[in-house]
Design a binder for these strands. Structure first.
Lengths: 349, 349
DNA sequence: ATGAAAGCGCTAACAC
DNA sequence: GTGTTAGCGCTTTCAT
């Protein structure tokens, strides 16, 4: 009784099954699914018909084993639901598509263990390249792991410390300085800075920018790094209001903090920008719809994802020159200060 | 001269390289990376040391070829940046993680060609299962393609017509009826319905719900399906205002339409809810922060993603009973009407 | 407790 | 133009 002809499961047909059904050799089928060059038109048509009727689709795993790329890239981010990273992912996906590749996304919640585990998992799957926005960008173990990889890696939003891993980021320091200086131009003298997650590279840079601008102007540092949700924002702001250095402006270092702060000010009935002006890091969908509309530092989110992915494929494909590892590539994208109502620039609508 | 010992590229070490370096057979290394049972403790330790020093990570492609699962699932959605689907993806990712699997996300922009192409691509990659939110859920070709697949498929948010593909969705019809009825309870009699993308299953269902509620009450149908951005919302609303049946309430069928509508009303200085009440489908982050806060139909977004993915793995793992294909599984999740200011329920804050 | 060897589905010499 | 065949990196009998 025949054994080789027995179909394994209710599974996918294989190339050799197609070959047998079409009465040709495997090479011919292989040629057909790879463009059909050097195949007799009649044979071509026949094989295509068989492929269609059997619903055959080549098994990428077998190709990979033969040495092909997996046609997948990995994207490691803190959260998929976060609008910032979701936009990055969308852009990355678009670029991957143009290279006939799929995007594998993993979320880490900025947890180091997750980050390392996800990297390893993606390597086992032999993604052709890897992009990571590391919450723990100074971790020695993560950095070493990434540098040992044999596939290209690009850091997103947060560079990997002590490494020559290329990174695509925005200039958080300069942007923060800009925002604070703008508030000063509105005559604000007691500018508070609210944030959480000060362990993140981006946040540290923004704090540094805040400090630099404030110090340069000889103003008081009013920094609270304990703000993570509405309640902590409320506590923080009430503390500031009650202090002997009641702020006349607030600079928030991330999207959600901006929103919580706005909600608190709205709830407390504090006039924005009259009593307290507000500028936040990161734009968000309804920033211009709120009243007052919120002035923000708008990062080129799509650009980050796109640029990083393009850089990744550049490295991936241009295996010609061994991407001069001496000069670390660090793409700094520009952040724009969008002036709306909350800083005092736009009155009414 | 040796040839087999030559390392192919600067690539990943292989299991047999590890075996050679450790002075053991491939079987032993295989055992080690699969738990280390039945391996002499001393051998185990040694092999582990070699693996560590070489940075060896098993090639998933080879395992797949041997018949293992790929440990990947595919998620096909209209857009990754859309908050609704981003949340679905986040939930799906979380479930996938618990099954040691990766999530491959692709975006289609609701384009049929993309949908079909993405399905095929994921099949070539032999994902263990597939989830899809199809913009063209009535497409015969897509439906047939999906039904022929040998891996489990679950539809998300939009069921696949004329198929027995299980689906996890919300009851758009009932929810829409609820919203309209609520507006009626506020005494509204001329309730307009604004939307775009009426080709989508969800939108059609919501329109059906609107019509049912309106007709049952003997009120006039004021439906405009041409709203896709701020400008079209503006045109639509001005048209309605100028008509002889000026609405006293607006029901919007999706997130972005709700926002555009709100912005238009705000711009026109129309009092909400006094002159025109507003209820929208889909909750959004700042719905409660806007003034007035927006009443919405809140879908259990996370639940959809989680439930669908759990269902997928259920089918994937429980190959025991051939998931009785007679009784199509259709999970209907509940949508909640969140009453805030824009419908007239909450006054002030 | 360990190793030899077959084979998963495909591609690429190399022969015809 | 087309077929034969040797692996790619693993897992898995089956010996030892």
């Amino acid at each position: 009784m025949p054994r080789k002809s027995a179909i394994k499961k209710n599974s996918h047909p294989t190339l050799s099954q197609v070959a047998r059904a079409a009465g040709v050799g495997t090479t011919t089928v292989s040629r057909v699914i790879n463009g059909g060059d050097f195949v007799n038109p009649k044979t071509l048509a026949k094989v295509r018909r068989v492929i269609e009727s059997m619903g055959y689709m080549p098994n990428q795993a077998a190709r990979v084993l033969k040495g092909d790329r997996t046609k997948t890239i990995g994207l490691i981010i803190p959260s998929i639901a976060d609008p910032f990273f979701a936009s990055c992912a969308e852009a990355a996906h678009a670029v991957a598509r143009t290279h006939d590749s799929l995007l594998i996304v993993t979320a880490t919640q900025n947890d180091l263990k997750n980050e390392i585990e996800n990297v390893k998992m993606l390597v086992r799957h032999r993604v052709d390249g890897l992009m990571i926005a590391a919450g723990n960008s100074r971790s020695k173990s993560l950095s070493q792991l990434l540098q040992r990889l044999s596939m290209p890696v690009v850091a997103i939003d947060r560079p990997i410390s002590d490494s020559n891993i290329p990174a695509v980021i925005t200039d958080n320091f300069v942007a923060a300085k800009l925002a604070v200086q703008h508030l000063m131009e509105h005559g604000r003298r007691r500018i508070a800075c609210l944030t959480g997650e000060q362990e993140l590279f981006t946040i540290r840079e923004r704090i540094r920018g805040y400090r630099a601008a404030i110090k340069h102007a000889g103003l008081p540092i009013l920094l609270d790094t304990s703000v993570g949700d509405f309640d902590s924002a409320m506590r923080s702001i009430q503390r500031l209001l009650a202090s002997d250095c009641c702020p006349d402006a607030i600079f928030t270092l991330k999207n959600s903090t901006t929103i919580y702060t706005f909600e608190v000010l709205q709830k407390l009935g504090i006039k924005v920008p009259e009593s307290i002006a507000l500028v936040g890091f990161d734009d968000f969908e309804l920033a211009s719809t709120l009243r007052p509309s919120i002035s923000v530092l708008q990062q080129p989110v799509q650009d980050i994802g796109r640029t990083a992915t393009e850089l990744l494929f550049e490295r991936l494909l241009g295996s010609a020159e061994r991407h001069s590892n001496d000069t670390r590539q660090l793409k700094l994208l520009e952040t724009h200060l969008i002036l709306r109502g909350s800083c005092g620039c736009v009155v009414g609508d």
